[in-house]
Nucleic acid binder design. Structure first.
Length: 823
RNA sequence: GCGGAAGUGGCGGAAUUGGCAGACGCGCUGGACUUAGGAUCCAGUUCCCCGUGAGUGCAGGUUCAAGUCCUGUCUUCCGCACCA
């Protein structure tokens, strides 16, 4: 028998598929329903890792399955090709970022082709290509024209290793998401996208995404961080100023004993000017402002504050309260000023305790026995208002709207909804990104580069040296230009865009990847999108997935598209780990996909990675598991070739002539069809789909010597190959042709379950006594309930157990079990 | 602290609607074939005091019946974290 040799046959079929263009997708095929399956495109680091292999294997199974089910499937691939590593390579190895990036992409495409993935390569998208970033710039201008892009001076997160600023979403526990260096604060004029305008929609529309994991939705929910509360305006009589605080607990307002401003609050300067301790306070402010994210949020960092010497008036009761400055108040959130209620807020309790500030109880527990002396921490539960003027006696929850009404009536406050989400900082002081298409003219101010002049191309005369900030600023040919409005001398913006902008719309570009008149044609995009199934890592739960939702909503409002959520179903795959931790160079536990494919072939690699764990869970790499997958494919190879002669007769099964054993094999076959179809389509449980195919193969082996009907052999072999085709596309294609079948197996129709074949004549019923299995009963599946009860209770072993006991009742679950309850 | 997910054999994992716990694979044990096998095929493999036994992190509860539902609790992982 010919040996299974994947190295030869995989290459052969990859070339054949390419030649025949069997994965080329045509837009809008009449009579076919569309299905868009997409894996998150990779950063072109140079080599595929196992995480990629897992990601693409999952997507490819779905794509192939849907194609066989008759859908018109869009399954494209591309590269998120801008970003820091290309620049680092330029600095380190003196190669141009473009050369490095394109060489890496070529290599990764070669590796992807080696995996036998069914992409339509005609739709390849590379975000660093001028034909793509031209439209990224165009979309920036769409945002700008809608007032959703603006430049402002702000305290930004700065990564001193990457020499650039970062968006909030890109700071992970005080560190840079890419290089893990500590993030520091820096005041810079930066471009922002107004994602906060969409905070409420982004939050509410999470409900429109039943196909997303709850985990991701919860994370986005928390990230957006909506809270309902009130603004309260406090007068500062000595300075003729007002300060507004934001609070979610206006019901505690009579308990305010102090107020705290953020160090950056604009009023601070005025309040402390000329005070004897002004210098000390300014030192304190400076220190707080320069505190890194890590210092600020570490558990050890104490709440620290200083008194400004000024007092504000509580509008509710006229109380005079001291104004403090403290490190725990964030300028960016709310109004940058908070009220202090030590008795009903734990943080305030600690702060007041440390600095000896007053405490006043305004909410009491059910017994009304709350006393300051007995308290060891703030009382944050609900209760009844006391010491609260006209509101005393009210339930505190009910007092909240009442007290806000009072504020509005007396013009010293109002209702307010607040979000934790901040605007998206998109400027990057780097070279390898899409230039922000803006020109600064002394006469005309900020001017957009006219559409006809796009793209603003990256210059080639750039030197890469370590530590250089904004390489574009050093390129005179780039910076100096003429104003599009007045024709006078002007300067270009030298920042580039966050690469997350490029990846916020690439999935739309695939639909119409070669359009040179627009980012895409509206009708074509609307015909393909939203993406039916998106697959990627959980690490993008907030970042890419939130940004993409935002882009989709803005582009819809701009009339460019007609859908408001980009991804209908989301599958977040787990990591590939080895020896208990994530594969990484530093741990030396990396397994190279190319090596595995070289040794066993892509079919084995794909099969193992899909079989070893369900997709959402982390997957422990196992060399022995790979051997198992390899053995299984060899088993398939041998059993199919064993029956080659019978199969070539190409007969259909004559159901009327089947023996009992043949019937059983055919039953297993059709149960497998049902199970595999359900596992792929409804559950994305590829591991159990594969295990049931293995069971089918085992059953085929078991009945190998039964002189099976040629029709049944043909049916079993054909359907087996079809079921396995999405997982291991090469071996199934090879066997398909060896058996004399015509056309590509990947163009064939998915097998249908014959439900009449899945019914067993005789079934086994479990017989329990008091819930414990005591016997089993083989009966016809047609047996009536009463008959079943009777037969079960008359089993000799059961009779022994029930003899002399009272039978209280008999539970009967059809097709499954009988439970006799005795006493 | 808040929010989320998960705890099942030696290992990866299965049990979809409350109905035989451990499918499938790995590993291990034995057999067959063989000059030989680390190939292949077949069989066995939760544990123990080996029976009317125990068993899905732990302690309770509901039910004829619980890995699955309820209450409490422990552990691990992940996300957010002075957000007022």
């Amino acid at each position: 028998m010919e040996k299974y040799c994947p190295q030869e046959l995989e290459k052969k079929w990859q070339e054949q598929w390419d030649k025949d263009g069997i994965y080329t997708t045509i837009n809008n095929v009449p009579g076919q329903k569309k299905y868009y399956v997409l894996e998150m495109f990779p950063y072109p680091s140079g080599n595929l890792h196992m995480g990629h292999v897992r990601n693409y294997s999952i997507g490819d199974v779905i794509a192939r399955f849907k194609r066989m089910q008759g859908f018109n499937v869009l399954h494209p691939m591309g590269f998120d090709a801008f970003g820091m590593p290309a620049e680092n390579a330029a600095i380190k190895h003196n190669v141009k970022p473009a050369d490095w990036t394109y060489a890496n992409m070529d290599n990764m495409i070669r590796q992807q082709k080696q995996m036998g993935l069914s992409y339509d390569w005609n739709r390849l998208v590379q975000t660093c290509h001028p034909d793509y970033y031209r439209w990224t710039q165009y979309l920036f201008e769409v945002f700008y024209k809608k007032g959703l892009a603006y430049k402002k001076k702000a305290t930004a997160n700065w990564c001193d290793s990457c020499k650039t600023v970062l968006a909030n979403e890109q700071v992970i526990e005080g560190r840079c998401w890419r290089c893990d260096s500590p993030v520091i604060k820096k005041d810079l004029a930066q471009w922002f996208l107004k994602i906060t305008d969409y905070a409420d929609t982004l939050l509410k529309d999470l409900d429109k995404l039943p196909g997303w994991p709850n985990r991701v939705k919860t994370m986005q929910h928390n990230w957006i961080g909506r809270s309902e509360g009130a603004e309260i305006i406090f007068n500062i009589p000595n300075f003729k100023e007002n300060v507004t605080v934001y609070t979610t607990r206006p019901d505690t307002a009579f308990g305010i004993t102090y107020m705290v401003l953020a160090a950056e609050h604009p009023l601070v300067d005025k309040l402390i000017k000329g005070r004897p301790d002004e210098a000390q306070i300014r030192d304190f402010i400076k220190r707080v402002h320069n505190q890194s994210e890590i210092e600020r949020t570490s558990d050890k960092s104490e709440k620290e504050g200083m008194f400004t010497g000024a007092y504000a008036i509580n509008p509710f009761n006229g109380a005079k309260i001291p104004i403090w400055i403290a490190n725990y108040v964030l300028f960016e959130y709310g109004t940058g000023a908070v009220m202090g209620v030590p008795t009903h807020d734990s943080r305030d309790w600690m702060f007041a305790g440390k600095y000896g500030l007053d405490k006043k109880i305004v909410i009491t527990d059910k017994e009304g026995k709350l006393t300051l002396d007995a308290m060891t921490d703030a009382y944050v539960d609900d209760g009844v208002l006391v010491n609260s003027g006209e509101f005393s006696g009210m339930n505190n929850r009910k007092a909240i709207p009442a007290m806000i009404d009072w504020l509005e009536k007396n013009k010293c406050g109002k209702r307010r909804i607040n979000y934790r989400l901040r605007d998206w900082l998109i400027s990057r002081q780097r070279y390898w990104g899409a230039p922000i298409p803006v020109i600064y003219c002394e006469k005309c101010g900020t001017v957009l580069v006219p559409e006809k002049d796009l793209p603003v191309r990256l210059p080639k005369d750039v030197k890469f040296d370590p530590g250089v900030v904004s390489p574009l600023a050093h390129s005179e040919s780039f910076v100096n230009c003429t104003c599009p409005k007045c024709g006078g001398p002007a300067k270009r913006e030298t920042d580039t865009m966050d690469t997350f902008i490029c990846s916020s719309w690439y999935y739309m570009r695939y639909a119409d990847a070669k359009n040179d008149k627009a980012p895409f044609d509206k009708d074509i995009v609307d015909s393909w999108l939203p993406v039916d199934q998106y697959i990627g890592g959980i690490e993008h739960a907030i970042l890419h997935l939130l940004y993409s939702r935002f882009f989709t909503k803005v582009l819809k409002d701009a009339g460019l598209i007609n859908f408001d959520e980009p991804f209908t179903n989301l599958l977040t795959q787990g990591m590939v780990i080895k020896d208990g931790s994530k594969m990484s160079k530093s741990l030396g536990n990396v397994v190279s996909p190319e090596e595995i494919i070289g040794k066993y072939g892509a079919d084995t690699a794909r099969l193992f990675i899909l079989f070893a764990a369900p997709p959402e869970r982390d997957l422990e790499w196992s060399d022995q598991g790979v051997e198992g997958a390899w053995r299984f494919l060899n088993r398939v190879w041998r059993i199919i070739l064993h029956f080659a002669e019978e199969i070539k007769e190409n007969k259909t099964t004559d159901v009327s002539l089947l023996t009992a054993k043949e019937k059983e094999l055919r039953r297993v076959l059709h149960l497998t069809i049902q199970k595999v179809t359900d596992d792929i389509a409804a559950r994305s449980n590829f591991n159990t789909a594969i295990s049931s195919i293995m069971e089918l193969v085992n059953a085929f082996y078991t009945s190998r010597d039964e002189h099976l009907q040629a029709g049944l052999i043909n049916e079993t072999a054909t359907d087996l190959l079809l079921l396995l085709a999405p997982f291991s596309p090469h071996i199934t294609e090879e066997l398909w042709h060896k058996l004399g079948k015509t056309g590509s197996i990947h163009k064939a129709a998915w097998p249908k379950c014959d439900h009449s074949a899945t019914v067993a004549d005789e079934i086994e019923i479990v017989v329990q006594v008091n819930g414990k299995v005591r016997d089993k009963l083989k009966i016809s599946s047609q047996t009536s309930r009463d008959d079943l009860k009777k037969q079960a209770s008359e089993l000799p072993h059961i009779k022994e157990l029930t003899n002399g006991k009272n039978i209280i009742k008999i539970i009967c679950v059809p097709q499954k079990l009988v439970n006799i309850v005795i006493k």
